[in-house]
Design a protein around this nucleic acid. Sequence first.
DNA 1: TGAATAGTGTCTTTCAGACAATATGCC
DNA 2: GGCATATTGTCTGAAAGACACTATTCA
Lengths: 223, 223
Amino acid sequence: MKAQDINKFEKPSVTVDVILMTIDEGRLKVLLIKRGIEPFKGQWALPGGFVRIDESLEKAARRELKEEAGVKNEYLEQLYSFGEVKRDPRGRVITVAYFALTNNSQRKLKPSFDADEAQWFPALHLPKLAFDHKKIIDFAYKRLRAKISYSNIAYGLLPDKFRLSELQKVYEIILDKTLDKRNFRKWILGLKLLESTGQKVTIGASRPAELYRFLQREPVLFD
Amino acid sequence: MKAQDINKFEKPSVTVDVILMTIDEGRLKVLLIKRGIEPFKGQWALPGGFVRIDESLEKAARRELKEEAGVKNEYLEQLYSFGEVKRDPRGRVITVAYFALTNNSQRKLKPSFDADEAQWFPALHLPKLAFDHKKIIDFAYKRLRAKISYSNIAYGLLPDKFRLSELQKVYEIILDKTLDKRNFRKWILGLKLLESTGQKVTIGASRPAELYRFLQREPVLFD
DNA sequence: TGAATAGTGTCTTTCAGACAATATGCC
DNA sequence: GGCATATTGTCTGAAAGACACTATTCA
């Protein structure tokens, strides 16, 4: 094969799709875009788009995140690549899915030029979705559930400083079960991922809570 | 964006690369191909090639596995997609890496038409590699080490029936540490992934060993 | 002083890890 | 009988899980 034979085969298109999740109203939510163009015009879909010839996959994912969701500096990891032949009616399109998390406070919806509308949906009550996006979101949800127990990715869902009860709530929502407060604190503090800021906040008529922060705001695995 | 705008952007090429591992001579080995063509002609590289327009990513990986390594029906999972802009000197090439395991008995080296030679190398003593393939193999090795402790993927490295001491050896090689025989057996049998076949084999002048088999020869996660 | 949320300790159970003697078949 | 490998159980320490009361602030 000669050097120019890179063009011997017909090339597929490559897109990135981003599953951006947050916690809002006590539920896990996913950002979806109402498609303004065919195919699947008018249906809900993941934000995403074609990878430019001169940008890396991760760069493309960050660009989409900014263009279509108006968020940046989020937790972002590559999820999986989906390459079934018929997954896009326009032709052969391989998509690399990225998984992102944001905290409730930063998110602002900023519809982009090629999307009518961006909206948050509960991850467990999704509308009908375009392409194979339902499958992709299910995949992301499973990854999140697994990974929250052996990594610090919860930082992606919280502001810089937070109460332990807020953190516990994040775990409860994602794992979909209630946790014992004492055991949770014993465990999470034993992991040495958090530090106390020394500051306290008072929420309504109640005892003030210590504010904690993650020692590192980049991915750390344990176990 | 209209339906035909799938062609609006210049398309990257998409390849699959396969990291095929086995255990041989008490070591973890990786199959490499000596490249018969530019770029990196004469250097060692992972088996792989372009994804055909009408085959899925996994199909492409299986095809490469068969064409370049002569093996089929192996354990195969998608590893990660590598999409740095300059990773291939020929132009923009995104590769989807697949991770495969085979047991020693089935493997036969069958050099393909576009490879001079296929050869097994110890995963911990690799030659200089083409492209970013060193990074990809490191990635695969980490995945294997992590996953063997919470999945049944060891089945991919063993024949249908095997002795517990063979299985233990697989774990010892991958984790790179010796394991206590009694504790290992207690653990692995407690996982309920194995069943006794009722058969025994005698190796040399020694007590016959019970042969076991995995209940399922497809991926199962636990923990 | 009552309502709301924060903060804390003990007991029990489970699981991981250290550790050595006996059993079986072949030569 | 000697060699090689297989098979088996107990003790200990660490971590996970069950469980309830006191502390602080504000209205």
